[in-house]
Design a protein around this nucleic acid. Structure first.
Lengths: 150, 150
DNA sequence: GATAAATAAAGAATATAATTCTTTATAAAT
DNA sequence: ATTTATAAAGAATTATATTCTTTATTTATC
């Protein structure tokens, strides 16, 4: 992991479709070393995957909600059960077990408020073991870095 | 946006490096229609970009912290100022203006606790207008969908 | 119901990029 | 100084993306 590898990661994080040729030009090298370095970064797990980023509004997911969840019971079995249940819901795009004021932080994408209400009433709230749910509705996405600060 | 487009988006979200040829095979079509549909999805903004996903632990970002921030003053100017300041910090990978118990939710990546403490003391807390900061430390990433639920 | 227009897909041909292989340079070690 | 290892260069090959032309399918109009 030298400076060249880091530069490659930065370029690929910004644009996963950048060609080996173009990386080579930018870093003043030929395609072979770049090709081999990229393959090594993939092989060694620095790059886990490549993904197309889809515009959520274009596919009608207008709402982002962060939900702080507090459980009643905190024995391992109950945590595992909750984590397994939450995985199933397609609305939940992220879920973190956190140490802090609440137990879990979950991020939800919904088409509209009705869909979110359905999720909350029929899905989340109907899990056993849920003690409290506190929702935060995203008004503006101030910063959304999809690349890591290397 | 028909069923084929949706299927293409699902495949590209999972694997941005999938070839036109392979998409074609999976959807029982030839490369031409797939190529043109992908270009259309890009042109019309459904696909905003392609990115390489980098393993944060591999690049030594061991901690994820969610930070709930409450401001003192909520006039437009003060909000804008805070939003501008928060953008500068490389540690902050996401920031949302939310309606709920707090004003802003920020997501932070840090190498270790010391780095986070430095960020909190020297950077975040030194912004004017900050009233309260409540940190939640991620213990486990239960679910991290990097693709939208289409 | 027949015809025309539009849309989508197929097939072939070309251009571009990825990948492999061989050679050369550079740096580190004995 | 000589060997060994590492990294990069250059050329050749393979695979994929891209373009162009043709064919099928659907939709609209008379």
């Amino acid at each position: 992991m030298d400076a060249t590898d880091k530069a490659i990661l930065l370029l690929l994080q910004k644009n996963g479709k950048i060609t080996i040729k173009e990386i080579a030009e930018r870093l003043n090298l030929t395609t072979t070393p770049i090709f081999e370095r990229v393959k090594k970064l993939e092989r060694e797990g620095f790059i886990t995957s490549y993904k197309a980023i889809v515009d959520r509004k274009k596919v009608n997911l207008q709402l982002i909600i962060f939900c702080n969840v507090t459980l009643n019971l905190h024995q391992t079995d109950f945590l595992k059960k909750f984590e397994k249940d939450i995985q199933q819901f397609p609305e939940v795009v992220e879920c973190y077990h956190v140490a802090g004021m609440f137990d879990y932080l979950i991020k939800i994408y919904a088409k509209n408020m009705e869909e979110y209400q359905q999720f909350l009433s029929n899905k989340l709230a109907s899990l056993e073991n849920i003690s409290k749910v506190q929702s935060s509705f995203v008004m503006t996405e101030v910063k959304t870095l999809s690349h890591l600060p290397l």
